[in-house]
Design a protein around this nucleic acid. Structure first.
Lengths: 182, 182, 182, 182
DNA sequence: TATGAATGAGCATTCATTCAT
DNA sequence: AATGAATGAATGCTCATTCAT
């Protein structure tokens, strides 16, 4: 039961003992080890799970006629997901872990570079079609967009008084201003 | 011997044993505990240290005639600092820890709300003076700026191929477009 | 494996490391902690165990027609138990601990006040029936009897040359003289 | 400053750190080690100090014409001293330590056997003079008297509601009944 | 398959003692 | 003589993992 990812989100990966996961999932230690070879395997599985969310976004972007519109349409949902406390904490945990553990880094990195690739491609397509500012440094832009998405979960936990809808609307305005040509 | 913060950055707070810190700092366990009451105290001290950097930025923003110019001038340095691998990793670690440990959260939160306050004030001042888009939702804007800054360290570790100068330039262009009025 | 109470008796509670107990009990540290939550829990368990002995004595006193006879009958056994080196040392250790640790004090205190209550009640019953000196200050008498029992273990360790049988006989004579009326 | 014996009484010998003693005595660790070679040396010094009290009692008993009267006269003071919380706790601590540490045992044992010797001698003298029951087993009697004195400190800590004067009076009556001949 | 007792290395922290100043 | 920083072994306790049942 990966649903015991709750523990990681709530207490941090390395403060969560296998026993706590067992208790939360209401199974025995032996059973847990039947499904996951090790603690690391659980983290990997969790990192993999994130891919689903990304895949949707990627599909959405690929399908959109206009990348800016496509991205902006998805924004409210993205903000909502990233702002979800458990999701956010878990993402931060896995992200931090990925900077250290090469196995996690591998999964996480593949995950991220898919999204990066999709964004890069979408922006370049937009530039060709004239819907995106041709002067844009695509690599740097994608870097910044991803950094922004990375930072939202953590920020949401601290700034509880800023309503997600406000954030989504403001971000949409920014993206339109920033990405569109003159 | 806070220079033993290297360990936290390199291996993560909870994977770093006090012994490792001692070894890195070339002191004995007893000596370490003379200077820091506990592991937590070290984290707090490190979190406090971050304030210095923030304080500089805040002073810079407060001194600037125009917030947008002020922020953009500071950008290359901000990006450089945030992009520094050790700084970035440590910031991520402390940030993650702050979502869990109330003592750290306190220091970290105070730290962050100072910066948030300074940004909010600077933007509002700009709106009065006409250098900032008056239609801007200031709270949400600051939220997004901070989220972006939060996300840069982690992203920098993964995307080593995007040169900081590009990032700074692209971000500057975005900020100018986004913050300036019509 | 409370039989590892040997360690406490042999070396003192606070000089006995959990590792020593593990070694004596031939189990691992982890296993020990499965049965006892902490070192304190072991002490509590040991203190609780003493209750059995007290309970027997209390039952014996309650059943006796004559308190003085009843007490004197139990005397040889009491002296033998108290004089047992391991029991004695352990009792001293737990007693000392009880003056400091509130949790132990609680168990120990409950333990002792049961016995005190039983003795008080038995003596008062004896006074009503005329088998006990009615001029006796019951509280003080019980205090002294318990103090005497408390002191026997420690004394036995030092005075190894005084045979328990002599002690029991002499004490019996004293009690009869002291408790009986004129 | 042996007055830092307070610490041992308050927290137990082995829970008291040298630093605590230093703090209580308001001296540095180095200074403490100038006066006492080790922690053990402090305990020994404290055990030695007890001898003074014993010596007084012994002198009193030796001087008394009648041992029973002599002992009974001293009773209120003995009870008061033994009932003093700090003295009692310390005595228990040192007594417990003496059962384990041969160096302490040596001092403590010498201390106790002096008193035992004095009591034995006094009782035998009384038997010769006809003021003490000639049927008394002197060794066992002394054992019991000492056990009683040993037990009073600990008991006093628990039974705070029994007034010392009551105890002294009741004990006097017992001793007279028990020690005098028919 | 599932259980949960057992392992034992590892961790944060303490403390008696030393010694340069 | 006095200080107090430094040492480093030892302590109570935890936890990922294994394995007999």
């Amino acid at each position: 039961m990966s649903a015991a990812a709750k523990c990681f989100a709530a207490r941090g990966i390395h403060q969560t003992s296998m026993q706590e996961i067992c208790d939360t999932a209401a199974i025995s230690a032996g059973a847990l080890y039947r499904y996951f070879e090790s603690k690391e395997a659980i983290i990997v599985a969790l990192a993999d799970e994130e891919r689903a969310g990304n895949a949707e976004l990627i599909a959405h972007l690929a399908a959109a006629d206009d990348i800016v519109d496509g991205l902006c349409e998805a924004l409210p949902e993205i903000i909502a997901v990233l702002g979800n406390e458990q999701y956010g904490r878990l993402a931060v945990e896995i992200g931090a872990e990925a900077t250290r553990n090469p196995v996690i880094a591998d999964v996480f990195g593949r995950n991220e570079s898919e999204l990066r690739g999709a964004l890069v491609e979408a922006l370049e397509r937009g530039q060709k079609r004239g819907t995106v500012d041709p002067a844009l440094d695509v690599q740097a832009t994608v870097f910044l967009i991803q950094a922004l998405f990375d930072g939202i979960p953590g920020r949401s936990i601290f700034a509880e008084d800023v309503p997600p809808r406000q954030v989504a609307e403001t971000l949409e305005r920014f993206l339109r201003k920033a990405l569109r040509g003159a």
